[in-house]
Design a protein around this nucleic acid. Structure first.
Length: 412
RNA sequence: CGGGGCGUAGCCCAGUUGGCUAAGGCGUCUGGUUUGGGACCAGAAGAUCGUGGGUUCGAGUCCCGCCGCCCCGACCA
């Protein structure tokens, strides 16, 4: 993409009324735009990142046989009455259609997915299966805060699994746990993200969260340094030792909840009277699991963690572009390099802007945070070289233009 | 939902006890110069001072209501 064509611009001043780092820098760099408290537009650069996160999640959930669907945001009242959550869930946005019919905006989708699964599950032979979506969720938080970390409208991947027996559910639950770990690794958050025991399993004693250690997180967890697992503060009084090794010397850390997994068991199948015929011709309630993960919150989390005083430093798998190509008054030569990289399917943001000073171009590159910066200038062009610099690094390397493609292969 | 803070041009803001034409910076536009870390000169445009009411000869400024945003807390299947 040519930067001259990008309709957004970077801004120098910190936005008023945003103190969280992720909101400040994402707005300054033109990744998101605030519409209202906890409600943001994803702009071209931000949407690219969001799509990359979504696709990593999608690949790993597909790999555990999740079947992607898309459920409606507009949910009929009846579905939510069946589970009692029309009245009980106070974050539910409610609205009225033209015929006075009432709806909720989906805050989660058990109320839709359970009757959906029911339609196609007549016998034990139809089980197990799992469906998921990546979709906008609405929660009327009393207080939205911290940019993308707690919005009223946000993107969520929600996976639901359906099983004939506990063994199948628990086997799948562990598979998803492993898939989640793969996802956080690919997102560059693996080291900081802890499998965490938390309160509120519907039937099982604990639920499980994935918590990414971060100073600006709103959760407190206790980490076992040996086992790379953690315990949420909310259960630390009843469980103060590592679940794995029994270690009681735990480190207190602030963290952001970047995923959670629940064994719902029969809570929702009961509400919808969702049963199937087992081998012995008995009607049994379906067992369910649900597995959430918030791509937009993850995007905010990555920004909170991966930055320096100049701007963002995107992990390569989620960077909006892998290369930021800067032309300093050498657009003819830079254009050739740009086209060549495009032909090799390298994602390039090409700063072809005229009358923009080198300083501003460098500052923008640092702010936007693509992993690799290439500079085409008269300084190196005579020797047929281009400057190469990693966002994470201060060292500038001179690379033969003819050898650029080969050179970049080392950084894929 | 309780407490605190804030609301002045596209963005960041000054405007102290009420007083004449609401100041500056960024950005934008025009012309010129400039090109290795957010350049420079000259000129220009851009403001129902969040909103409604009130007090006053006179309100950005004082009073009341409402709306919005941020922060702390509570809440967070």
């Amino acid at each position: 993409m040519k930067q001259s064509l990008l309709f957004t611009k970077t801004i120098k001043e910190l936005p008023k009324d945003e103190t969280s780092y992720n909101a400040q820098v994402l707005i300054r760099a033109g990744f998101i735009d605030k519409v209202s408290a906890g409600v943001y537009t994803f702009l071209p650069l931000g949407l690219k990142v969001l799509h990359k996160i979504n696709n990593i999640i999608r690949e790993e959930i597909n790999a555990v046989s999740g079947q992607e669907i898309l459920m409606p945001a507009l949910n009929p009242k009846e579905n939510w009455q069946k589970t009692g959550r029309w009245d009980d869930l106070d974050v539910l946005f409610k609205l009225i259609g033209s015929d006075d019919k009432e709806y909720a905006l989906g805050a989660t989708h058990e109320e839709i997915v359970t009757p959906l699964g029911q339609k196609f599950t007549l016998s034990y032979k139809d089980l197990p299966f799992a469906v998921y979506q990546i979709q906008t969720k609405f929660r009327n938080e009393k207080r939205a805060k911290a940019g993308l970390l707690r919005g009223r409208e946000f993107v969520m991947k929600d996976l639901y699994s359906f099983h004939a027996d506990e063994e199948s559910l628990s086997k799948y639950y562990n598979k998803v746990k492993e898939a989640y770990e793969k996802i956080y690794n690919r997102l560059g958050l693996g080291d900081l993200t802890y499998f965490t025991y938390a309160a509120g399993g519907t039937f099982s004693k604990y639920s499980h969260e994935f918590q990414t250690v971060c100073e600006n997180g709103e959760d407190i967890i206790y980490v076992c340094p040996k086992c790379h697992i953690a315990i949420n503060k909310e259960i630390i009084s009843e469980q103060n030792a590592c679940f794995k090794c029994g270690n009681t010397v735990l480190e207190e850390k602030k963290a952001i909840e970047v995923g959670n997994i629940f064994e719902l068991k029969t809570k929702y199948s009961k509400a919808f009277n969702f049963t199937f015929k087992d081998k012995d011709e008995n009607n049994k309630e379906v067992l369910m699991g649900c597995y959430g993960m918030g791509p937009s919150r993850i995007m905010g989390t990555i920004v909170e963690i991966c930055h320096d005083d100049k701007g963002m430093i995107w992990p390569k798998n989620v960077a909006p572009f892998s290369v930021h190509l800067i032309s300093l008054k050498q657009n003819e030569e830079a254009e050739k390099i740009y086209q060549k990289l495009l032909n090799e399917n390298i994602e390039v943001l090409y700063d072809d802007r005229d009358n923009v000073s080198p300083g501003e171009k460098f500052a923008d590159a640092d702010l936007i945070g693509c992993p690799i910066r290439l500079v085409v200038s008269s300084k190196t062009l005579d020797d047929k070289k281009i400057e190469f610099k990693l966002r994470t690094d201060d060292e500038i390397k001179l690379v033969d233009i003819d050898n650029l493609s080969n050179f970049l292969k080392n950084y894929k």
